[in-house]
Amino acid sequence: MRKNWIKKTSAAVLGLILTGSLLAGCGSGSGTAAQGADEPQAQETEAEAAGTEAADAAENENAGFRTLEEIQASGKITIGVFSDKSPFGYVDENGEYQGYDVYFGNRIAQDLGVELEYVSTEAASRIEYLQTGKVDIILANFTVTPERAEEVDFALPYMNVALGVVSHNDRVITDLSQITADDQVIVISGTTAETYLTKNNPEIKLQKFDTYATAKSAFENGTGVAWANDNTEVIAFAAENEGYTVGIDSLGSADTIAPAVTKGNETLLNWLNEEIVKLGEEKFFHADYEATLVDTYGPEFEETLVVEGGGQAAAPAQN
């Protein structure tokens, strides 16, 4: 017994020390990221100063970005995208990046007049890439949330995401009030759809599933009258499977997807905002939708999903 206790305690202490040092390593960054390989001396002095600058860390956390001028002078922009999230960011059979986000990324590089390098990012590392200045822009289907907005700066949005409800063709649910006390609605545990319905419509009986696949087969077997999920998911489901209609395509607080830059990188942020407004005049994102998303979502959801010229950012958020 006694030996066991000692073992456990020492393991816990070791764990604590390691976690502590890890947090220190990740959290205390004073953001002196390299501004480019051509300034080795500046980097060195910055690195030396890093220790003493710890007090300013909060203010100076994201100093590692490149301004618009620096990007143009270097002749190359680095954009972080998904490489395995079709149809937003993926790599086709010829090894080329494709998708809704990539279509926009290509245009950004073209209008800046610089070369383009895509970096394959994972959902979990998107913020880290920006905070360390390893990419200039993240265009990885990045949903704007208040928590994220504290870590990075979002430009104007270029796409909408909301919840959607798909139902069987013989009884299309176009409003949540059509759901009676006997009906059940299918959701996937842990999704925003579950959170939203539990909070705002507690009277609706939910049937919860852990995975997309189980929810899908339950819905196909008629377990629920409707299935609530991200609208992109239910729209794609209805498009791929016969006999289903998306009766509600935008439910709950409409979130948006926007490009993100390192916090404080105002020159690049302003340029991006102007670019998005300017592209609105030529209906760029509608063309983007028609080139990349129409196969998955069909033409009828173009207006639901596309945000042109950052437009809806100014409109009051719908509840």
């Binding site: 890890l22 990740c26 205390s28 960054g29 953001g31 390299a34 690195a47 890093a50 200045g133």
Partner: peptide, 17 residues
């Protein structure tokens, strides 16, 4: 964790890219 420390952590703390 080691990968994240070496790739991101060194940039934050020392400015190495």
């Amino acid at each position: 964790v080691l990968l994240f420390i070496v790739f991101f952590g060194t940039t934050r703390v020392f400015g190495w890219n």
